[in-house]
Nucleic acid binder design. Structure first.
Length: 258
DNA sequence: AAGCACACCTGCTAGC
DNA sequence: TGCTAGCAGGTGTGCT
């Protein structure tokens, strides 16, 4: 990158903007990876550093011709050369970008407290079971799934979908999970996350999520319970219930999820 | 010390 | 028609 523009006040907040820009100046974007909900883009020509991006609720990473008009709420622009640029667009300004060092495992050092990624092939059902149930007397199952220190990468929407697929109530105690139920949950989480990625994500009614080319994802059409309150349960036709768990809209079947 | 409430923020929608 | 209140949620912080 030769040209780094940071116009938004909040999008670069973990480090001084000058430091952020200096770390990117003259570097080339390399391999694109992910840990949990954080995008990790290696910086070639630097020593084990990466551009780390979290979209939070409304962030978008867009690739466009530099000559194209910039969308409203464009907060950071990285000139990529060849007349193209990468733009960080984020109406709600919850999202963020920072440059971080990578540890020996290739994980940004700021993210070391995070649990294993939900799709990490090394994460077994037994490990998931241990992480969810360890030392938790009163925490609910869904809050445990949403805790990125327990498991990285599961947000509100996919927590609801995975719990439905595993036939587990979101408001049951995390510690009550049996080993057998953990196997179901492990399987459901992976199946749903893989299918959602294959469908390029869930774009909801607000179309806040689009890919780098501005295209919406197609997974929302396959949601079984999320944002489907009062619709019949796909398994047993009982109306889907919406409750609030940990201050988040939570959707489940009160009949076949236990 | 685990677990909770709340702040952060804007766009959209429901309701008057 | 035009306004406003309410809602959406990931994560960091601060409180109990």
């Amino acid at each position: 990158m030769q040209r780094i523009e940071v116009t938004g006040r909040r999008s670069v907040r973990r480090q001084p903007v000058e430091e952020f820009a200096a770390a990117l100046q003259g570097r080339t974007l390399g391999v694109v990876g992910r840990h949990g909900k954080f995008l990790v883009i290696a910086l070639d020509g630097s020593q084990n550093e990466a551009l780390v991006i979290h979209l939070r609720m409304s962030g978008q990473v867009r690739l466009s011709a530099s000559l194209d008009g910039r969308p409203k709420h464009t907060h950071v622009v990285l000139g990529l050369g060849g007349g193209s640029e990468m733009r960080f667009v984020d109406p709600r300004t919850f999202g963020e970008l920072f440059v971080d060092r990578l540890d020996v495992d290739g994980r940004p050092v700021s993210l070391q407290a995070m649990g294993p990624d939900a799709l990490d092939p090394r994460l077994s059902a037994a490990m998931l079971h241990n992480r969810i149930t360890a030392g938790r007397r009163s925490l609910g199952l869904k809050p445990a799934l949403l805790d990125q220190r327990v498991l990285a990468g599961v947000g509100n929407l996919y927590a609801d979908e995975a719990l439905f697929a595993a036939a587990l109530r979101p408001d049951r105690r995390a510690a009550s999970l049996t080993a057998r139920q953990s196997v179901m949950l492990h399987r459901s989480l992976r199946r749903i996350l893989r299918a959602a990625i294959a469908a390029r994500g869930s774009s909801l009614a607000d179309a806040a999520y689009v890919d780098t080319l501005g295209l919406p994802g197609g997974y929302a059409a396959r949601h079984q319970v999320y944002a489907r309150a009062d619709h019949p349960c796909p398994r047993c036709a009982t109306p889907i219930l919406r409750i609030v768990v940990a201050a988040r809209g939570t959707h489940f079947c009160p009949s076949c999820q236990t």
